[in-house]
Amino acid sequence: MIVFDRVSFSYGIQQVLKGVSFSIPFNERVAILGGSGDGKTTLLKLIVGLLKPDSGRIVVDGEDITDKNEDELREVRTKFSIVFQEGALFDSLNVKENIAFGLREYSKMTEEEIDKKVRGLLGEVGLEHAIELMPEELSGGMLRRVAIMRSLAAFDPKMFLYDEATTGLDPVNADIICKLIVDLTQGGKGFIIVTHKVFDALRLAERFMFLKNGSILFDGNRDQLMQSSIPEIRVFLTELNPPLPASS
């Protein structure tokens, strides 16, 4: 369970979150919707302790992580698999070394075992042929798949965190990523995806939150979202039934 209790956060003078509270069980599938610059990435970073709130508490799995230092947070972070915007692959390492990164840090596997594990993971997403490629040689969709596999190679996460996993992808690749996200929830694992793409959010999630100006404007299920009268949400929902082209 992730609990935010009146969490506020600002970068210098710019306040990004204003007393946000919510709780999300590890097995829930949540989409946090919000526009660009509304603090979606910031929120994810707070969950894994990459940022510290100015005020309020953050509790993960019953442990208050607000005042934990970097060493204590190591343990907390292994509970999650987090995939950043654009994948965030290390561009000095090839695909294999990217996926092996966590394994080398956390396990005592031999070179052969690592190779086998990496090939296995890449096989699951149909990318065995890309094992020697550098990140700059991958397409956007391949990059996300590699990033997702890297994030779960070393740990057995309780929950997945995705930052804009499908943003900037064509519908076909977005579809592949959405299927992968659903596949990975097998065994009752949940995820939080932050995104501004309502279409993908509706395919994936069962609970929706809407972040705007540093507050959660909406928190509810699919039906409540579709019937919401909040103007910002209505604008987001037009993505689903685009207006007809204006005619003269």
Partner: peptide
């Protein structure tokens, strides 16, 4: 976000 990723990996 590569530096954040490093921190996530401990």
């Amino acid at each position: 976000h590569q530096v954040d990723t490093l921190r996530v990996f401990g």
